[in-house]
Amino acid sequence: MHMADALLSPAVGGTMWGVAAGTIAYSSMKVKKELDDSKVPLMGVLGAFIFAAQMINFTIPATGSSGHLGGGLLLAILLGPYAAFLTIASVLVVQSLFFADGGILALGCNIFNLGFFPAFIAYPFIYRKIAGSRPGRTRLSIAAMIAAVVGLQMGAFSVVLETVSSGISSLPFSTFVVLMQPIHLAIGIVEGLVTATVVSFVAAARPEILRAASESVTLGSLSLRKVLLSFLAASLLIGGIVSWFASENPDGLEWAIAKVTGSEEVTGTDEGVHTMLASLQEKIAFLPDYSFKKDVATASEGEAKVGAVKEDTTGRLGTSVAGGVGALLSLALAFVIGIALRRRQQFA
């Protein structure tokens, strides 16, 4: 559920960068304050461990498909919220730079979606509350399962909000939610199961590791109220900036909302899902050979508008031909310059 640069608007991406940077700065301060310098290498190698562990796939029970560990919750259990958040963030930075998982602008979103929820919500307020200080195997599994599911649901919902408010994808909000949440329910259950298996293994083989981890975690300063308040503040900030941008720029949020309602109207006039599904294939065809509803609808409203539409499409045609030619030309030009530079470098 990595967000991608290509789906983001600068306003959303930039705001989430700000939120992620703020949380990183705050967590860094907290970790530094703990004064436990053995955590420095521990966070580093555990990050590398998550990286390695994510590359080992396992078979998801009762299905044929394979999955891998996400690791956010596991890190929180081992390191506590602040250090875990920093570790997840660092893993995401490396993934975005070297494997193009997500992207640089989407980094803020990804750090928030995959780091904030497991470290600051799921772990302290769900896992710790259910598991207590020395949980048995069943209790631990239940705690991990619920915490993982909640963390991932929140993360997935956050992805939906970020995507819809960016307005690059045409997916309507409701459809997107219906798509994302159930998938992440399944992913969450698997993540919880895996986390529980690994934690129980460590608890059996090396109990002192978990004991050290849960003792070193200082939860005293992390109250639910404080977290919720800062979350609220962040959402207000995000909402404010995004809607401001959206009003400046009609391609943003409003546009997306108009789009959602618009597509509902379409299904309404088409009289049911039946017709819609029947014509779906036709409609997603690259070259649909029927006239569009827009033309029909506007035609009934008068000559002038028909003219406008016609002009609009023919106008677009003109610019499109020039644009297409120019696009190819500029691409070719870029590569010619590139090759020339390369030649010059080689002779230099």
Partner: peptide, 30 residues
């Protein structure tokens, strides 16, 4: 082909424990 959860857990768990011990050695070296 597949790696079931029953063996995945201990495999990752072992890796985790070795990682932990390595962190301790690095800290020592520091």
């Amino acid at each position: 082909k597949g790696l079931g959860l029953a063996s995945f857990g201990p495999l990752i768990g072992h890796l985790l424990i070795r990682t932990w011990l390595r962190a301790e050695r690095i800290h020592m070296a520091m």
